[in-house]
């Protein structure tokens, strides 16, 4: 790779200026390191397979334009979780559906705390005033020994 020497020295200058003008805050590094405590080894991961607010599909554009609720779909082997995220004032309202239907204990986990709700026999659950930020759902279905945790998602 050959680069003009003037580019090289300009990059060196840029490196120094960026380091000085916009260093990564210590708190951001600390938070990244702290993420490790959320490592889970004894639960099935339900990956985020669809996010109505992501991508450039017509549906995503329509969702954003209309201010309609955002729909998230998480999938793990044998279980699917659909979550609608609405905005209510400063918090979020989460309305969820487990498939296959099952009653369950659902914990909405954030960096700062947790909200516990119960899914009814039709697999429906909801939570109000969930603080905006990065969350995941931890789900213990009645009659199942394997808990499910969803991927982290910023709401």
């Amino acid at each position: 790779m050959t680069i003009e020497p003037t580019f090289d020295s300009l990059l060196d200058e840029l490196r120094r200026v960026v380091d000085q003008a916009d260093p990564i805050p210590d708190a951001v590094i600390r938070a990244a390191k702290e993420s490790f405590v959320w490592r889970t080894i004894d639960a099935d991961l339900a990956a985020l397979v669809n996010d109505s607010a992501a991508g450039d599909t017509a549906a995503a554009v329509a969702v954003r334009a209309s201010g309609a609720a955002r729909l998230l779909t998480f999938q793990a082997p044998g279980v699917e979780v659909e979550v609608e995220v609405g905005e209510t004032g400063r918090g979020r309202r989460l309305t969820g559906q487990l498939v296959p239907v099952s009653s369950a204990r659902v914990t909405i986990r954030s960096m700062t705390g947790a909200v516990d709700v119960v899914a009814d026999e039709f697999g429906r659950f909801s939570a109000d005033a969930v603080p905006a930020g990065t969350v995941r759902l931890e789900i213990e279905r009645d009659g199942s020994t394997s808990p499910v945790v969803t991927s982290w998602v910023s709401i």
């Binding site: 930020g133 982290w152 910023s154």
Partner: peptide, 19 residues
């Protein structure tokens, strides 16, 4: 800076999941 911190948090949490 606040949004960048949020994005960073999410990215590292995702890596914990996938580590």
């Amino acid at each position: 800076a606040a949004d960048a911190a949020d994005v960073s948090q999410t990215a590292w949490l995702r890596l914990v999941e996938h580590v």
